[in-house]
């Protein structure tokens, strides 16, 4: 009873903290044979993209003040953000070594913009504008590192971290949107596979990841990078 209890306890610890402290779990399991990732994987699934604040666009007048570039006078303010929503995604990857893999991904979503107009100097009523959704497609490339020594659940689950870059295309001719942005991202997650065969993950599985994304360009009032978070869950198949 006590040993079994310890085993369950260890699994829980690995399951909760394995993504953050893989080195510690690796030490605890170093006497076990290491299960490696499959040679290639594909996946499709859905995700959720968090909202992202865009820059404020003030309607300004040149201020009646001394100097060649006086402080502006704000006539009214326009604030805009992309709203959170669902995203469909797919990816295909190969594992170059036992730990390192590369993948290309594709995502499609239809985010909407919420714009609020406030602080009118003549007290025009605050106004909200929610645009029709626009089409956003995303192509990305990532490099992954699998913590094979931190596998748990009978080696069927492996945590990983990843980082990558890509391009986002935002387009809706009806709203006058036709923008291209670059993205830079990093995240962590885990993969679960139904089978382990010859010390490699095989068969149908699940992948979950959470990522922090920096978007450079795209729909915005100003130049600069905007950040948002996203999570994805995909069904996968390992070859």
């Amino acid at each position: 009873m006590r040993a079994a209890t310890r085993k369950v306890w260890r699994r829980l610890v690995v399951g909760v903290c394995g993504l953050l402290v893989p080195a510690a779990t690796a030490i605890a399991q170093e006497d076990r044979p290491v299960v490696r990732p499959s040679r290639a994987e594909i996946g499709v699934g859905i995700g959720w993209v968090g909202q992202s604040d865009l820059a404020t666009r003030d309607a300004t007048f040149t201020g009646n003040s001394p100097g060649a570039e006086p402080d502006p006078f704000v006539f009214f303010r326009v604030n805009e953000r992309t709203r959170s929503g669902l995203v469909g995604s797919g990816w295909a990857g190969v594992n170059l070594t036992d730990s390192v893999g590369v993948e290309v991904g594709f995502a499609y979503s239809q985010p909407s913009l919420k714009t609020t107009i406030t602080d009118d100097v003549e007290d025009a009523a605050d106004t909200s504008i929610v645009t029709a959704t626009f089409n956003q497609t995303q192509v990305e490339g990532n490099i992954l590192y699998h913590f094979n020594k931190a596998r748990y659940d009978n080696d069927r689950t492996v945590p990983f971290v990843f980082a990558g870059a890509g391009v986002i295309k935002q387009r809706d001719t009806g709203e006058g949107i036709d923008e291209t942005a670059q993205l830079y991202q990093a995240g962590l997650g885990f993969k679960w596979f139904s089978k382990i065969r010859q010390l490699r993950a095989r068969g149908i599985g699940l992948r979950f990841d959470a990522r922090y994304v920096l978007r450079d360009g795209g729909v915005d009032f100003a130049e600069g990078r905007r950040s948002f978070v996203a999570v994805n869950m995909t069904t996968t198949f390992a070859f």
């Binding site: 300004t60 007048f61 201020g63 009646n64 003040s65 001394p66 060649a68 100097v121």
Partner: peptide, 28 residues
């Protein structure tokens, strides 16, 4: 805008606005 009992031109965003900036100001 009215400020401290005075009414003054706060700003303009067209050369063709019919009132001039205060003396000494060259922003427009």
């Amino acid at each position: 805008e009215e400020r401290d009992g005075d009414v003054r031109l706060a700003g303009a965003e067209a050369i063709m606005f019919p009132f001039a900036f205060d003396p000494g100001n060259i922003g427009l």
